[in-house]
Amino acid sequence: MPGDPLRAFAEGAAIPLSVITGFLGSGKTTLLNRLLRDPSMGDSAVLVNELGEIGIDHLAVQEVQENVVLLASGCLCCAIRSDLVAALRLLFVQRLQGEVPPFRRVVIETTGLADPVPVIHTLMTDPLLLERFRLDAMVTTVDACHGERQLEAFAEAVKQVVVADGIVLTKLDLRGDDAPDLRARLRGLNPGVVPLPADQATAARLFASTPVRRNNALRRWVAEAVQDESSHSPVRTVCLSTEHPLDWAEFTTWLGALLSAHGPTVLRCKGVLDVAGRDRPVVINGVQHVFYPAEELQAWPEGARRTQLVFITRDLPPETIPASFHQRFGSRAGAAL
């Protein structure tokens, strides 16, 4: 957890960076190809594993640098030949030196078998990247035909859904229904995120663009979470709530100890906190042991001033987190900061 609960980039101080992930064959590249035709993406840089996977033959205007092409839409498209951090640093330097056109957003497409957690960890902890980029939105594509089987068989597919800020449901046209069972499974893994059919997945709907919009989406995610007490599923949603303000230092100590003890089994944590000494709600948003900088929302919804926490866990007894929380805090109000 960051030491300062209110650390946040000033508006415009960092370049928003979004990630498109999803299991093998789920339509990441098809989605990206369509997004690249959107005029609103014209000031974006796109990083992919191989340029050849993007249908750029009819879109490319010129080669700007080695492994960097300028598309007709105005987007930069770059091949990640090795390390993601090195690629982002180089791209930023090229932007400063005028070697590539200026861009105001970066979109990264991961490989289908990628565990998104290390990617998030890298983007949220590298000091040089944190000065230049702000992790904005994680978008996950899910195959409507094969998604249920993939979620049962592959831990990577589960993590890709759990970390998502937006979910795109692909290949619905190949099914005879609206995939109700898959939608229910996705809601159980990631409450508050409503899957978008691929034909409705526009850049405006997928990318948050501003911290305010991202935090409002996070608050909605927490408000719509439903505790999953099913005993047969290894993935559960655990919800906590208290009307007593929390001491920030005590809370972060507790959360740090919890993640230290159970880190790999806690896939996602989001929350809206009533912090003692603060008039406005503080939001936290983390993937395993890595957290976005905590931020404040503008105001509490009327009649809803209370701490709400949601954990998504895998292979962790459902009583573990609630028992730990209530043992530490009980009904006590937190001391002022």
Rank of each mutant, 00 (worst) to 15 (best):
R34F: 07
D38Q: 13
D43Q: 15
L90P: 01
V68G: 01
S40R: 14
L47P: 11
Q65L: 14
I108S: 03
L35M: 15
A14Q: 14
I56F: 12
A60F: 03
V68N: 07
L123M: 00
F103N: 05
L17W: 10
F103C: 01
H58V: 12
E53M: 05
A86P: 04
S26R: 13
I54H: 11
A45E: 03
Q97S: 10
R104E: 08
V46I: 15
D115Q: 04
T110I: 01
G27M: 10
Q65H: 09
H121A: 11
G98Q: 02
L70K: 08
A114K: 03
R37Q: 15
V68D: 07
Q62V: 05
I108E: 07
A114G: 01
V119K: 02
S40K: 09
F92P: 04
R89K: 11
N67T: 13
A8T: 09
E53H: 10
G42Q: 14
V48E: 05
A13T: 01
P127I: 00
E50C: 10
A10E: 12
L36C: 10
G112M: 03
L76E: 12
S40Y: 06
V107T: 00
L84Y: 04
R104W: 01
A8M: 03
L76Q: 12
L59R: 10
L88S: 11
F103M: 04
L47Y: 08
I80E: 00
V107Y: 01
C77D: 11
C77E: 10
V85S: 02
R81S: 13
V48G: 02
V69R: 03
F23W: 15
I80F: 06
M41W: 02
V106Q: 00
P127L: 01
N49S: 11
A114T: 12
P16E: 08
P127F: 01
H58W: 07
L35H: 14
V107Q: 00
R81I: 03
R81W: 01
A86Y: 05
K28G: 10
L35N: 13
